[in-house]
Design a protein around this nucleic acid. Structure first.
Lengths: 276, 276
DNA sequence: CGTGCTGTTGAGGACGATCAATGACGGTGG
DNA sequence: CCACCGTCATTGATCGTCCTCAACAGCACG
């Protein structure tokens, strides 16, 4: 039985960006080539560092090529709110160039070590004029972000922490899956989950322990280890359609059944303790 | 002393759309004329009715010309989550045309009687190609929506209900102000506020009573009556920069001081009971 | 081999949900 | 003109979730 499991640093940038574009409704045509063609250079950012800070005034758009990043805002008392997690193929900071007046407080940080592509925003404007469909695709990317955020807020507001956290984890699994990464460990600290879910780290810890007792999660020194995706999906009542990721994996979303079958094929249930 | 107070049905569609476009970084040039030129017809929707439902499959984009609308999603048990309030000049349902796969569950409803302009989405695509700057402006409109939503979520997650509700009300005042409406009554029911803030209607009621005792609000049979904006802004710690509404009123945002001075000039403090 | 970050556990308290009933108001039809 | 009814606002009481503070354990890293 093949266990597809590639680390996040192994992803191929080109195919990842292509997959992302496919999920935005573009085929791999001239637009994709044009976009890839304007990547000027690459950079590496270490875990915990800022990729794009509040005060940066460069004309560069950043495209995440490997690793996991997050868009966040600092609040008073040093707290942090994470609006979005970002994976290879995602643009980190388009908002800062398209509408800088409005998104001024938002930074992007590296959750794991990240590799990023640097693109000149002027070049983006140029190829948007050349390929109007590309402009619409980038617009759609913003709407996809909004959709993901809306769904999270729905869970934050109207569900228990158990559903909220499990849903958040399902989202990460789906997005990792969409870029060809089938790892069972999600590289997020409990603090990251807390700041994204709007809950305290203490409560996240207790919720994760509940999910462990339900057999969905396991223990892991760094990151969250998923033992049983099917159970996680059940607990979260996860329906991935809002992610529009039919491109790489038609199993998520359209048919939960097929999705779960496929998952269990390579994700044996190792642990099934009951919550007493 | 002049009391500028125009009802929402009195707003002039053209100048309102123009103001909106200005806040998106466009000048009133050919793009605006092109956009206004493709409005095919107008329609009226009564209070409480659906403007754009989940299953509507028309090729028409709707542009709110008068009234207040909201973008919402129905949840189980008949509950409703309001993602955004919409005012004249706002597009109601671009997401449904630009990225229908992802925004499928979202409807738009009329909070007050609404007048809407109907635009053919094909026409929009056509003039976007003709005026690439217009495409960017619409992209920016989506980002502005996202910014407003982010700010609300920040308050929902990290503040008390008092700050959350007062902030929500400040946002509505600012947006009304931006389209030239200086009414002191916000046409939202407590239920609407509850569904937007993610709180129960009962709790909203108690929070509003607190704001009344603090002298910020008054009583009103329908809608929320604002007695003292300055106090409301203080309570909310409202900073309107995230709305990017420098166009019509430079007083909001850039300088809270000037903003509050200007407000008090025409918003006399009628009621200043103390919270015992 | 320390040192700091991350995860874990306990106890107490505050905020907001829920349920249920009542009041106030406006619109409608007889 | 008045009776009726539905919507919206209001109030009280109880309960649960999650926060906060505080202390400690364990691991990774230098």
């Amino acid at each position: 039985m093949p266990i597809p499991s590639s680390a996040l640093s192994d992803v191929d940038p080109v195919s990842t960006v292509a997959a992302k574009f496919q999920s935005l409704g573009m085929d791999d045509g001239d637009e994709l080539r044009a976009l890839l063609g304007i990547i000027r250079r690459k950079a590496t950012v270490r875990r915990g560092e800022i990729i794009a800070g509040v005060d940066d005034r460069t004309g560069s758009v950043l495209l995440l090529l490997a690793g996991v990043a997050c868009r966040f805002q600092r609040l008073e008392k040093g707290r942090r709110h994470i609006f979005a997690f970002q994976y290879p193929g995602d643009f980190c900071d388009f908002h800062r160039h398209v509408f800088p007046e409005v998104a001024s407080e938002i930074s992007t940080g590296a959750i794991t070590e990240c590799s990023i592509g640097v693109v000149d925003y002027g070049d983006v404007e140029r190829i948007i004029v050349q390929f109007p469909k590309l402009g619409v695709a980038l617009w759609r990317a913003t709407m996809l972000d909004a959709s993901i955020f809306r769904e999270r807020v729905l869970y934050m507001t109207h569900r228990t922490s158990l559903a909220c956290v499990s849903h958040l984890l399902c989202e990460q699994l789906a997005r990792l899956n969409a870029i060809g990464v089938s790892a069972r460990t999600i590289p997020l600290r409990q603090i990251d989950i807390a700041d994204a879910a709007g809950l305290s780290a203490v409560h996240i810890n207790r919720t994760i322990q509940q999910l462990r007792m339900l057999g969905a999660l396991g223990r892991s020194s760094r990151g969250v280890k998923v033992l049983n995706r099917r159970r996680l999906v059940e607990i979260a009542k996860f329906d991935g359609r809002y992610l529009n990721m039919s491109a790489l994996q038609s199993n998520w979303g359209t048919s939960i059944e097929a999705f779960m079958d496929e998952l269990d094929a390579w994700s044996p249930i190792e642990n099934s303790q009951q919550l007493s």
